[in-house]
C-alpha cells in the first residue's frame, strides 16, 4: 500500500477527531472509562485502520486481512471507537458501553466485530502477535501483524520474552507500536520504573526502531507505511504521545487514566475538541 493511494492527511485528521469525540462520549456513560490511554493512541489507530491495514468491515474474518492486537487492552474504548468509525458496527451502539448486557466490556472482547483477541492483562500482545506473524510467514501470506503496547506495560517481563522471541525468528511482518505517553496509573513511568531510552532497549533486543511524534498523524502513517524498515527484523514504532491528548484539562495528567465525566466536564471536553485542531497533543 502506498501513501499516494491512501486518504489525505486532512481526511485522517477528521476521522481522528470523530474518534476522539466518541471516546469522550463513552467516558461520560455511567461507568466512565480509560480515557487518557485511549486518546493518546488515536493517531496510531486512525493511521492503521484508515490507511495502513488491509481490513474489510464487511468481512471482519477475511483470511487475508491484517491483524491488530491491542496489547494495552485498557484502551479498548479507543479501539471500539475506531472500529465504529471504520464501519465495523453502528457507532450508536457505543452509547450502551459497559451497561448490563452490552457486548462492550472495558477490555476488548471478540464479540465486538473487528476485535481479534481479548486483551487487558498486560504483556500478552507480543506473544500473540508472534503467533499470527509466524503463521502468516509459514503460510506464505502477505498478512502483517500490528500490536500496540503501553509504555507502562513494558514493565511486564513477558513483553521482553516476546521482544527476544520475535527478533530471534526474524519476523519482519510484525510491527509493534509503543504508546510512549510517559504516564501509568499512578504517575510518571520514569518515576516508577525508568525505561529510557525506550528505543535503545528495543534496538538492543534486535528490532528496527523509529520514533515519531505519535500525535502527528502524518509522521505516524509515513513511518508505518514503510515497514519493514530493516529486512529480517521486526519493527517497533516508539510513538511519543500525550496521555489524554486533545482534551486540555486532562492532557498530560495521570488522572486521565480512568475518567467518568460529569455532564459539565463532558461538555467542556466536547467544546475543547471542537475548538482544537484535530492534531490534539495536549498543548492547546
Amino acid at each position: 500500500m502506498t501513501l499516494t493511494a491512501g486518504p489525505g492527511t486532512e481526511e485522517l485528521k477528521a476521522h481522528a477527531l470523530r474518534i476522539r469525540e466518541r471516546i469522550v462520549d463513552v467516558c461520560a456513560t455511567p461507568e466512565g472509562g480509560h480515557l487518557g490511554g485511549s486518546l493518546s493512541l488515536v493517531e496510531v489507530l486512525t493511521s492503521l485502520y484508515f490507511d495502513i491495514m488491509r481490513v474489510d468491515p464487511g468481512h471482519p474474518d477475511d483470511p487475508e486481512r491484517d491483524i491488530f492486537l491491542l496489547s494495552k487492552g485498557h484502551a479498548a474504548i479507543g479501539l471500539y471507537c475506531t472500529l465504529a468509525e471504520r464501519g465495523f458496527f453502528d457507532p450508536e451502539e457505543l452509547s450502551g458501553y459497559a451497561t448490563t448486557g452490552s457486548r462492550f466490556m472495558a477490555h476488548p472482547v471478540k464479540a465486538v466485530p473487528g476485535v481479534e483477541m481479548p486483551t487487558g492483562s498486560l504483556g500478552h500482545g507480543p506473544a500473540l502477535a508472534i503467533g499470527f506473524a509466524l503463521a502468516a510467514r509459514l503460510s506464505g501470506s502477505a498478512r502483517r501483524t500490528f500490536v500496540a503496547i503501553g509504555d507502562g506495560e513494558m514493565q511486564e517481563g513477558s513483553v521482553w520474552e516476546g521482544a527476544m522471541g520475535a527478533a530471534a525468528l526474524g519476523l519482519d511482518n510484525l510491527v509493534a507500536i509503543v504508546d510512549r505517553n510517559g504516564l501509568q496509573l499512578t504517575g510518571a513511568t520514569e518515576d516508577i520504573v525508568p525505561m529510557e531510552s525506550v528505543g535503545e532497549r528495543w534496538r538492543s533486543f534486535g528490532w528496527a526502531v523509529r520514533e515519531v511524534d505519535g500525535q502527528d498523524i502524518a509522521q505516524v502513517r509515513a513511518a508505518l507505511a514503510e515497514t519493514p524498515w530493516e529486512p529480517g527484523r521486526p519493527s517497533v514504532l516508539v510513538a511519543r504521545t500525550t496521555k489524554g491528548a486533545g482534551v486540555p484539562f486532562v492532557a498530560g495528567n495521570a488522572k486521565s487514566h480512568y475518567v467518568n465525566f460529569t455532564e459539565r466536564q463532558h461538555g467542556r471536553a466536547r467544546s475543547a475538541l471542537r475548538r482544537s485542531a484535530p492534531r490534539g497533543g495536549g498543548d492547546e
Binding site: E116, L128, A129, G131, A133, L134, S158
Partner: peptide, 12 residues
C-alpha cells in the same frame, strides 16, 4: 509465556 501466547496466535 511466549510459547503459550504464540501458540494461541497461530491457532487463531
Amino acid at each position: 509465556h511466549n510459547l503459550m501466547g504464540m501458540a494461541a496466535g497461530m491457532a487463531a
